[in-house]
Structure formats: C-alpha cells, structure tokens
C-alpha cells in the first residue's frame, strides 16, 4: 500500500474543500435550514403527525439524506473531473499508485466532507425542530454508507463526464427527482397503491426509509431491506469503478 499517496490525495482534496468553505459547507447548510423553516416550522405546524411523528421531525432524516446524496455526487465528481479537465491527472496516472489507493484518497476525502456536512446539518436542524435518535449507531452507519456509495457514484460520473454539462446533468436530471420522489417529505404509504409500487423501484426510498428508521423506529420498508439495498448500490459502484480502472476507461488512451 502506498500510504503516502493516499494521504497526499486526501489532504489535497480536503484542502480544496477548505478553500471553498462557503460553497461546500455554508451553502448546503443554508439551503437545508430554509427547508426546515418553510416545511418544518411554517407548513409543518399545519400538517398532522405522520406515523406519530411531528411533520418537522419527520422530514429531518430525509433532508439530511437529500443533501448528503447531492453533495457527495457533486463533490466527488468534481474532485476527479477537475484534474481530468486541467490535465493534471497525468501525475496520478504516472504515479506508483493502484486504483484502490486513488479511490481511497479521492472518495475518502469526499465522503469525509459529506459526513461532516451531515453532522452539521443535523446540528442545525436541532435549532428548528426537536428530534431524537433511537439508534445512533445505525444512524451513523447509514450516513457513512450513503456518503461512501454516493461519493463512489460521483467519482464514476466525474470520470465518465467530458463536459461540465454532463457533470451537472446526472445530479440534476436523475438524482434530484429520485430524492424528491424518494420519500424525503412524506411517507410512501401516503401514496395511492399503484404509486407505492412504483416508488419501490426507486433506490433512494430504501436509503431514506432506513435512515428514518434509525431515528424514530418507523420505516416505509423493512430496515434489513434498506440495508441490503444500500449495500447492493455500494457493490455496484465498486464493480463499475473496478472496471474503469482495469480498462483505463476515459483515463488512458
């Protein structure tokens, strides 16, 4: 293992986050706070409890997930797209590093940032809505798994994209709808029966449901199923990344 290389990439990437502190931390916190104010406090007070949980508290796990997913993707994809775009990727390609080390560096740094961000948003949420966490260990576990999986997914998008448009297209066109339709703001049990079935095709439903279960012990789907789906998504991402590096796809001619 080339530990110095992992450390170098990791530090380099976190330094980038630090430099752009406003965009990378402040703006997601601000926008989530707005959700809490509008949905949690203003509208939430007029909406009844969902499965015994006040609406404001109900949306906390979903909103955290929503931010984690989109931030993980945009962060990790940008992290690898930038050196590809400027050409500095040549150095990583010519270095004595294996793809595992490259991923540990890039994805590790992006996931670290996502987890920190998640914690900050949870702390911020506290200011607006009282909530409790029933299973803190599972909560941290789901948070970490989601951060890592979506950072890997972002990494793949960053390698695949050959323009800024493509880089932004996937999060915008696929992830945003999936997260909004994934039960961040409602329980899927509130949907008509047909749409409940359709919703189950959305992988994000499982992530949010599992995460919410770790807070309140209530879930749209079985928590084991949630965990299984999360791990499956992670496995798929790992497999794709493995293929990318084996073939040099979009990295080497």
């Amino acid at each position: 293992m080339n530990f110095y290389a992992i450390r170098s990439i990791y530090i380099f990437e976190l330094a980038r986050t630090w430099r752009t502190l406003m965009q990378s931390i402040a703006s997601p916190i601000l926008s989530t706070s707005l959700y809490f104010v509008v949905f949690g406090a203003a509208i939430g007070s007029r909406v009844g409890d969902i499965e015994g949980i006040s609406y404001g508290a109900f949306i906390v796990p979903g909103l955290v997930m929503l931010t984690i997913m989109s931030e993980s993707i945009s962060n990790a994809s940008f992290g690898i797209y930038l050196p590809k775009f400027t050409g500095t990727i040549y150095e990583v390609l010519s270095a004595p590093v294996s793809y595992i080390e490259v991923i540990l560096g890039y994805v590790g740094a992006a996931a670290t940032k996502s987890v920190i961000l998640g914690a900050l948003i949870l702390a911020t949420a506290r200011l607006f809505v009282p909530y409790h966490v029933l299973h803190p260990f599972w909560m941290a576990g789901f948070l970490l798994l989601t951060a890592v999986s979506f950072c890997l997914f972002g990494f793949i998008i960053g390698i695949w994209a050959d323009s800024f448009q493509k880089l932004q297209m996937v999060p915008l066109m696929i992830i945003t709808p999936l997260t909004f339709l994934g039960g961040s703001f409602y329980s899927i049990h509130m949907l008509p029966p047909f749409w409940q079935k359709v919703a189950l095709l959305n992988p994000v439903v499982y992530l949010i449901s599992g995460f919410r279960w770790s807070f309140y012990g209530v879930a749209d789907v079985n928590v084991e199923v949630s965990l299984g789906m999360t791990l499956l998504f992670l496995a798929v991402c790992i497999a794709v990344v493995w293929r990318i590096f084996r073939t040099g796809y979009k990295l080497k001619s």
Binding site: I11, F12, T86, E91, A95
Partner: peptide, 25 residues
C-alpha cells in the same frame, strides 16, 4: 510533460509535497 498542466489554487510548496507523497516518499 510538454503542456503546462499545473494546479491552479495550490502553492508551489504544496503541489510539490503532493507530488512527493503521490510517488510514495
């Protein structure tokens, strides 16, 4: 390399330290 492909926001010292680490030193 032939092209001037450098980092942008990093300092000279930092970019060199990055290179050194990347090569396992």
């Amino acid at each position: 390399l032939q092209e001037l492909t450098t980092d942008v926001f990093e300092t000279v010292r930092d970019t060199m330290s990055f290179s050194r680490g990347l090569f396992g030193k």
